[in-house]
Amino acid sequence: MKGYYAFTKKELLEQLRTFKWLIILSVFFLFGMMSPVLAKLMPDILSGMEVEGMKIVIPDPTAMDAYGQFFKNFTQMGILVVLLVFGGTLSNELVRGTLVNILAKGMPRPVVILSKYTAAVLLWTVGYLLAAATTFGYTAYLFKDALVSNLVFSMFCLWLFGIFVLALVFLSSTIASGNFGGLVLSAVALILMLMIGVIPNTEKYNPVTLASVNVALLSGTKEVKDLIATVIITCLLTVGCMIGSIVLFGKKKL
């Protein structure tokens, strides 16, 4: 337990001193702020680009568009940022050999993985909350009818998807070697999941669904109960990835 506490503290210090907090918080804040602002300004921007003889007619933007922007930004750029920032958390230490000293002191290997995961989850959660709160605040300020259905659940789904992606990165980093092995492998795994999503009737069992139904949830075309199975499966897969990563890391040559 002492080792877990100490190593988590080290991870947080590392995130702070290697500017990961700065990057995540500023990028996520930007996403949170830009989404409603862009939605609001989109008609003006497009009308500025009016081509002679053609008029682009766009309905007045609503809060739904603002959240739509938010989810679009996050499921694409947001997840990419997460991959880039956390892709090296484990790989870098394995490549550089910085873990050797720590493990030679009798630190249990599973604790290393759990500490690192804790710190990554913490940063993702704080960043995501900041982005969500910013979007919520700006949307409420810019749009009168800021009411949408299932907002909290929809946001929760994307958060959970992030948690899953982090676990996937950890598993990939223990499987693939090299600086970017983990990053590439998890990207490949995500793309595969996206492709599987094309097959009908699989979406219920695919974690990627959590990052694609967000707007449908808001508009009410999807209900919370439609996604319970996906949430449970994603949780199980996350735990599975972590167990796999701990087992594989325990067998890794250093």
Binding site: L13, E14, G106
Partner: peptide, 16 residues
């Protein structure tokens, strides 16, 4: 390992 102190040939530390 709790009884062992180890100095690798090229020790690596957290540079920050």
């Amino acid at each position: 390992n709790r009884n062992i102190g180890y100095l690798p040939d090229v020790p690596e530390f957290y540079s920050y």
